[in-house]
Design a protein around this nucleic acid. Structure first.
Lengths: 249, 249
DNA sequence: CGTGCCACCATGGTCCGACCAGATCACCCC
DNA sequence: GGGGTGATCTGGTCGGACCATGGTGGCACG
């Protein structure tokens, strides 16, 4: 039972404030004493929260005041928090994460395909086969995609990939909406073709082809997601702006 | 002048101990009071160090004792510390990092190539052209590769890629040894071919081809590095084992 | 009036000592 | 021997304190 401590709650609050863009980069955060007063905790508790923020790379603590760090210095770990910020994260962030995820999975597919042993290869083919079947729901597809990705990473035997996958692991529904095209007639043909290509690539241990197949699949997903979310956005409130806004000049 | 604080020094010490594999996963770390005594600091200072470790994902703090976290839960940020651990990091780690770096750069090349504007494209071609010239030293090549990578990331406009690049940024010489093949006759032809392919891909905004070219280049580098380092290792002491050892079963 | 210097104050870094609740573990009783 | 139980240990939090440093305003001097 992960009983959250006060320092981690405070760290999460401040982190989200920063990620939401409520403090400009370089701006001073409230002093430790102020925050201790505001949150009704002891200063040392606030300090511990600050240390977390510094380790996360979103703040820089120095005598004279803690300041918001430039976003480029942040840890990849902020991604999951960016996605979890609100019910409707900035679609641009979601898209950038999905894009990175596509590339990451393509990378994993390449290495995994080249290095998988017989058992791993069989398991990979099983999953691809399951994805080819029709009649699965969004959640089921999402599960399959996740497992496929994990198996590729596992087969690659690369710990760095594993860590990257951990940071990018989609935990929110926002990133899983696109899988509907699996059952939609329009995209179905393309998906099937890509899956077929992927299966052959796995059998032939052809990393490059597997990589392309995965990337193609991911692109289809992202496209589908963009269409769906832009439609959804049209009848919703404005998305929240975050510190990432404008990142893609 | 980043005057390092005691808590960060202690955090670094403990982190390196953990990364070096001196504590088994799940094993209890010494208590805060013990460490405070050992380091001659107050317990609250040790606590701040612990918070950093927890945020880094290498330790899990809970009543009853802080324990070493499973490696999969760690942040990507540990990679740079793994490489900085000793003068001669485990070659397997270096190889895994380079492998991930290859994939990352291929990803950045794909997205960057597809989305670069005219000025960015011109700059990319400039760098590729500079890499084609002979007579450059290892350091110069490393610089060019780094800048090329950065420009691709910049052109991609993807903040997640930027964060990944930051975590994987090679800061140590170990990851730069392979560039010698740029001037070596045996590899030179292959390198030139790949560079030529890359240039054409950039001109044509062909992400897939650019990605393949970069991946091919990176593979040549890694190969070269492996040969060099295995030769060097033969006449050196055993490499240090770290927590990553055995990651590639 | 402008400028430069200095004292003052706020801030982070560290320390001291204390209390609480939950986890651990050894011991004892059954 | 097994299970309960209390001493003990651990982290979580608190209150207060001191120091060095950096920021800032005011005061004196030009």
């Amino acid at each position: 039972m992960p009983t959250t401590t006060q320092d981690s709650s405070i760290a999460a609050l401040l982190r989200d404030d920063i990620l939401r863009g409520q403090y400009r980069c370089g701006e001073r955060l409230p002093s430790e004493r102020d925050l201790a007063l505001r949150f009704g905790v002891h200063r040392s508790t606030v300090r511990e929260a600050f240390k977390r923020l510094e380790q996360l790379g979103v703040a820089r603590i120095a005598p004279g005041g803690a300041r918001v760090a430039p976003l480029e210095e942040a840890s990849l770990d902020i991604v999951e928090h960016l996605l979890a910020l609100d019910d409707a994260p900035d679609p641009e962030i979601v898209d950038q994460v999905l894009e990175a995820l596509s590339g990451f999975r393509a990378m994993a597919a390449r290495l995994g395909t080249e290095r998988a042993d017989a058992a791993q290869r069989a398991r990979l083919l099983e999953i691809v086969d399951a994805m080819s079947r029709s009649g699965l729901g969004n959640e089921e597809y999402a599960e399959l995609v996740l497992e496929l990705s994990d198996r590729f990473v596992e087969a690659s035997g690369n710990m760095v990939l594993r860590l990257m996958g951990h940071a990018l692991r989609p935990q929110r529904a926002h990133t899983r909406l696109g899988y509907g095209l699996f059952s939609d007639p329009p995209g179905r043909a393309e998906v099937d073709a890509a899956l077929e290509q992927l299966a052959r690539a796995i059998e032939a241990a052809d990393g490059t082809r597997a990589s392309e197949a995965i990337y193609g699949l991911s692109r289809l997903f992202r496209q589908s997601l963009r269409e769906r979310s832009s439609a959804a956005e049209a009848r919703a409130t404005r998305p929240n702006r975050t510190a990432l806004a404008g990142g893609r000049a």
